[in-house]
Amino acid sequence: MNSPVKTKSVTASDVSGLFAARARWHPLEIIFWLAAFSTIFLLPSKHLILTEIAILALFALSLDLILGYAGIISLGHAAFFGFGAYVAGLLGKNGIITEPLLALIVSGLATSVLGFVTSFLVLRGSDLTRLMVTLGIALMLRELANRYRDITGGADGLQGIVVDPVFGMFRFDIFGHTAFYYSLGVLFVLFLIARRIVNSPFGLSLRAVKANPLRASAISISVDGRLVAIYTLAAAYAGIAGALLTQTQAFASLAYFDFDRSADLLLVLIIGGTGYLYGGLIGAVVFKVLHDYLSILTPQYWLFWMGLLLVLIVLVGRERITGWTTPLRDLASRLDWRARSKKS
């Protein structure tokens, strides 16, 4: 094109270089995971709570996939967590599948079916409708689990769950060592998969759908299709998190479906920040530490502090609260490769 202004032109290697840089591992990410795995040796006495943190982190990662990458606000993400937990529990209790990894996969798949079916309700309407639907589905499942007590144990919870040793070798011990290795391993693998997915064209298209659904459909992206896909995937992740909790505690309860759990999860994710995958992981650590500290202080009124925290976070501004994670956010690839390209 003829033009009075000279502009530089790019070559294929520039472009593919930039794309590749987006997905490259940042040193901070590597440090993060090294630190996570080092707790295996450094904090052996804390493995019980670390297991809970790993499971909460996976659950929050699941919410980040729909909230951070697709912009869907859910008040009932615990529905999938609880569903996965009960599927795993029933598989173990009735001796259908006692091999933990297989049971985990089956629970994840079963929950993804639930996610797929309910996604069509979530697609419809505004934020408000989504709040109602997600909340309603969680309440409905809780009611179901409560009502069919001969299968689920009702309010007493699901007990007597049999879980074989992991890989046939590592028994779940009372100190929670095996449980922690197992949970951390599952979290890491599922994180890698999620990381790969958000860096794919599909992941990029999710961000486009969130930013501007009108335009996304004008470049032939099926907005509904993308939302269904990510909702289904997120459901599977939440289901696996629930199944992990059941397997490591050998117990599942109605409380897994509770609204409090869905709301906790929002808080976890907000503490860490949305849309860069690490938010839920960091948030889970902060949340659990805070929870432990405040529960000791005032065991009954933990709810009050959580409410106060939510209110304060919003009043101060989410961006400012999560500002402290900015260096970590950068690792989500953007500023990193941008900085590099500016140098060149």
Partner: peptide
């Protein structure tokens, strides 16, 4: 949503 849930929790506990 976050803010008003926070208020609810505070009211419930209070």
């Amino acid at each position: 949503v976050l803010f008003t849930i926070g208020l609810v929790f505070m009211a419930v506990a209070a």
